[in-house]
Design a protein around this nucleic acid. Sequence first.
RNA 1: GCUGAUGUAGCUCAGGGGUAGAGCACUUCCUUGGUAAGGAAGAGGUCAUGGGUUCAAUUCCCAUCAUCAGCUCCA
Length: 647
Amino acid sequence: MIKITFPDQSVREYQEGVTGLEIAKSISNSLANEVLSISVDGETWDLTRAILGNASVKLYKWDDEEGKHAFWHSSAHLMAEALEAIYPGVKLGIGPSIENGFYYDIDLGDGKSISDADLPKIENKMVELARTKSPYSRRDIPKEEALSYFTQKGDPYKIELITDLTDGTISFYSQGNFTDLCRGPHLPDTSYIKAIKLLSIAGAYWRGNEKNKQLTRIYGVSFPKQKMLEEYLVMLEQAKLRDHRKLGKELELFTFSPRVGQGLPLWLPKGAKLRELLENFLKKVQKEYGYEQVITPHIGQKELYVTSGHYEKYGKDSFQPIKTPQDGEEFLLKPMNCPHHCEIYRSKPHSYKDLPIRMAEFGTVYRYEQSGELHGLTRVRGFTQDDAHLFCRADQIKEEFIKVIDIIFRIFKALDFKDYVAQISLRDPNNKEKYIGSDENWDKAESAIIEAAQEKGLKTTVELGEAAFYGPKLDFMVKDAIGRKWQLGTIQVDYNLPERFELEYMGADNQKHRPVMIHRAPFGSMERFVAVLIEHTAGKFPLWLAPDQVVIMPISEKFNDYGKKVLNFLNNSDIRTLLDDRNEKIGKKIRDNELKKIPYLLIIGEKEEADGSVSVRKQGDGDKGSMSLEEFASFINNEIGTQLKEI
RNA sequence: GCUGAUGUAGCUCAGGGGUAGAGCACUUCCUUGGUAAGGAAGAGGUCAUGGGUUCAAUUCCCAUCAUCAGCUCCA
């Protein structure tokens, strides 16, 4: 007998060789029906694998990441089996589970391709195979046998994977007529997979390397119940309704024109208003933190960027230098604001008493992003950073860093951003040539970031090799409507630019010292931030940010004159107000203005005109009763005050 | 940049080798209505652009441009 310990520390005895599924059954049949995988002493296993000694276990169901992982990974194998059946000779790359489903990378052979139209055929085959209830069986085999299996099968990708594996044993999983190299774990059998939807086809480079062959990647998702698939698809549809590209058009916030150029957003009046409100808000906060606004031009001599190192690093991938009638003179559209700010710093001598200097600018920069990367407002070729550069002494780095985290916290709180991840990006210790600057400075900067984050109680993930080429950084990442991750706020330490621009200050010791620079942008860029804001709010901006806050809707044209009076009154009270004086019935006006997501709708008619009031309707929340004009104005200003006071 | 898909009215979309259609929006008229679509009429399109095939191309083919999904990249 062996002792099995459960997460609640209870212990039960079982026969040696008991499986996860048997353990689940011994607890309850319903558990046995739901369990998908098991962890044995911290390692995730198949439910059908024999446990040979005392162990701590945890059973995983659909609600556990580990359970879903086994489910989707098994689904990937099932898809591979279906693909081999439909496309004999297909070569397989990798087929993992991902956050929302699974994929498999395949090589159909030269000149062959599949399209979306082929997906249902593959789906059907998968359903058919799933119904055969084929067990997923695991087999540990020696490396030579694994290699000879795939050599015989003629699958170069698997051979490459096996060759690179350093583990002593290699495991194969089989179900039906399909065998794959795999670490597992998998479901007990294919019948668990009840609902399958293949979502899309895309190219993907073998092993993620642009220089390698591009394989065909098929994305899919699967569920243990048909109903769950249906719910998932509905959820996807609803998420698409929040897409900032769709809402940006509907709410008339921004647009693009091919005649202006790819990735160059045109801000429409309402979008410009929103952006202006955000900028003013940040300016105000930054003023409290001792920032000073500066303004610099959109271009700079090429030499400026040669000095900063940006030209060497990114020159080839940028908008190319602008020539002038002057022979040999070249300017760059600025891809970064920092070199200009360094020159401002250099414009006069500084004392240690002046530091830190905090120089802020809403600086528009231009980068020639790859065409396939452009994406609505989140990835564009011309964008405005809410940039600032802090020039400080080495002993001030941590404190300055903490203050920037405070600003970011304040902004995220003001806008109700809760679902963000803070990521510390350090350099790749195995590839130090990628970066510029001394080991010593890198170490100092990296530890300052880590300490500052710890001190603010910020939960962070650490990514090696994700640092900028000039220094480590702390980024704030958020997800968009369909789960894609974007970087918003960023704080970066830089020892490099002060060196390159020979920035100095006079110390208390009457010696010259080099300041440290911190780059920081709480929004990241106005474009990306507005995009994410649109998706998080579904276009229902908080009252203080709404481009139009109130719309007045007369019951009939007879009350348009009173409408104009109300309009003047509210506009004079600094409330952004519109008058809907169209010849339409009130139901129509309500519908149209609700769809425009204007926060407050005012209905006025005979009664309101008579007593100088308005009938108030809150967007999405219906009739709120009537108020006098004065009451309404102070009601609105109170709500804005409350929203901004919380900030 | 790469793979695949898409491009028809301001918007959302249907259609299809014989020079185009709906709904919404827009204009005019009727209506003057109390909390999510009142009625009628009208106007609006080189069917993304450039080539090719054809008696004839918006439709088929090729290229370009743009958009979408993913990969790679992201100072």
